[in-house]
Write a protein that binds this DNA or RNA. Sequence first.
DNA 1: TTATTTTTGTACCATCTTGCATAAAATAAT
DNA 2: ATTATTTTATGCAAGATGGTACAAAAATAA
Lengths: 199, 199
Amino acid sequence: MQDGTKIKSGRGRPRAFDREQALLAAMRLFQTQGYSGTSLDDLANAMGIKRSSLNNTFGNKLALYQHTLALYEQRMGEQLTQRLFGGAELAESLNDYFSALIAIYCQEGGQGCFFTTTLPCVLRTEQTLQETFMANHTALESMFLARLQQAGHQDEQAEISAQLLLALQHTLSLRARAGVSQAALLKLSCAAIARILAA
Amino acid sequence: MQDGTKIKSGRGRPRAFDREQALLAAMRLFQTQGYSGTSLDDLANAMGIKRSSLNNTFGNKLALYQHTLALYEQRMGEQLTQRLFGGAELAESLNDYFSALIAIYCQEGGQGCFFTTTLPCVLRTEQTLQETFMANHTALESMFLARLQQAGHQDEQAEISAQLLLALQHTLSLRARAGVSQAALLKLSCAAIARILAA
DNA sequence: TTATTTTTGTACCATCTTGCATAAAATAAT
DNA sequence: ATTATTTTATGCAAGATGGTACAAAAATAA
């Protein structure tokens, strides 16, 4: 009966917890333990609510996971998109974007990207997640492409450059998750950007 | 009492199944469902053996997973290393290597790389796996570096190029897993190699 | 043959897991 | 105050899960 996206609750007992704070706690746990490795009891504990509230507010486990994915995507966009389209110089914009990205990936001991570190292993068992993953994938590539075109880059070359920038983002995520230091990632990022723009 | 790596069994009842075939079946299942998403019952069924034989031969679930990772790494090395160091021309070697890599990644509906698609989500809960992942990571980068140096590439630039080649491998794995077509991956691979060598 | 070693089949156990049911609590509308 | 509506608390149930125990089976060594 619940949509899980409702905000205003006309009447009835008011919710005793903050919806977004709870989702953030769930996100952190999913990001640390993966989807299959996290139980609803774990989640409810981390969120500071009871299982009944969890199911009532977010639906089942898969729906909760999708909500955390959506929240992550939204928050990342808020923190990063402006950096990419802010600066006048393309190289400067890219360095700004990836520096901020690396800082996020290295939080909490190097979690990497929520999508690329936790989604791939469950893509085959949960079909709807494949679409979620692919949608994010194409959105990121389109974003890079738009910024390159804004800088005057042409069709074919711009498309390849956009793909390489996403490749950089992928490898940064995996390396952060593997424990590579923030300094090493920054160095790699700078060198990669220079190479990609050198064409 | 078992090491799990023993080959010769002096006396006693001989094993009724092929150890490597069983490991391959386990690998396929782990690759499809992830580590946490696969139960020992699932594995025993796929391997065609009983739970008792599984535990007796490979130890517990984590040990079995590590055995499949080792087998994957070994087999990939056998199929790919020669391609990288075979050809005389660097660009040719790289295209040969990545073409074969993509063909493997796209098998069975696009599984991608066993390491990069199933390991990241469990790195935080199983510490020993972090070392396994990092070891593979550095081994691959060293392999690319060695091939570049063999072609006469110099220190700093060769190191960056090796990192970018590993980045290419990462993004190919994730894209294959996301469902990107083999043709699209090949196109990306060729363009990326050209860019990386253009420096 | 007899003893020893290893694998195999079956069963069991303690725990975890998910979803659901039911009642109590809190608030708005009537 | 009463009713309707929503959240919260508690518990239950059916099944899954990982690990282990034990006897039977199979093969070799003495």
